[in-house]
Design a protein around this nucleic acid. Structure first.
Length: 146
DNA sequence: GCCAACGTTGGC
DNA sequence: GCCAACGTTGGC
């Protein structure tokens, strides 16, 4: 799950404990949000950061429900074409699990052969995306220790 | 700040 | 249903 740290960083989540993951306005990303199940883990990725990197781990604590910002005209994420009877956009709630002792930069990921096929690399613009279990285990193995 | 990649919109 | 125009993402 990607977020720009200037907007919402893993340290913001650490301070809050849990947070709604709102503002997703891409259908594919939304569909991946809807596929998430309570207890699932996800990486927290800092996009548009210097350097862009995987910084930690979160847990899904509430499955997809309508993202309220789509109905808030004052919100940056307001979508006047979304029908309240059939909301277009969803969010999940996530809980901070940990910040990795060693973040993994996109540049490093591209240099690790088994990670080159990650959606992160091949479909760079997708902000919520699946991670294969082999990829997950490899990354946790690298990031989990300093 | 630039720009490649690519998703979305809307005319036809 | 196609595709041009346009907007956004996100790395660099």
């Amino acid at each position: 799950m990607k977020s720009e740290p200037d907007v919402f960083s893993i340290w913001d989540l650490m301070a809050k404990g849990t947070s709604g993951w709102d503002g997703v306005r891409n259908f594919q990303a939304r569909n991946f949000l809807r596929a998430m199940r309570k207890g699932d883990r996800a990486f927290f990725y800092h996009s548009n950061a210097d350097p862009p990197c995987i910084v930690g781990e979160v847990e899904i604590v509430k499955e997809a429900y309508p993202d309220p910002t789509q109905f808030d005209p004052k919100s940056h994420y307001y979508d006047d074409s979304s029908n309240p009877k059939d909301p277009r956009w969803s969010q999940v709630d996530v809980r901070f699990v940990r910040e990795f002792p060693r973040p993994l930069t996109l540049q490093e990921i591209k240099g690790i052969k088994p990670l080159r096929e990650m959606v992160l690399v091949t479909r760079g613009r997708l902000s919520v995306q699946p991670v294969a279990s082999a990829e997950w285990n490899l990354i946790v193995g690298i990031c989990g220790r300093r």
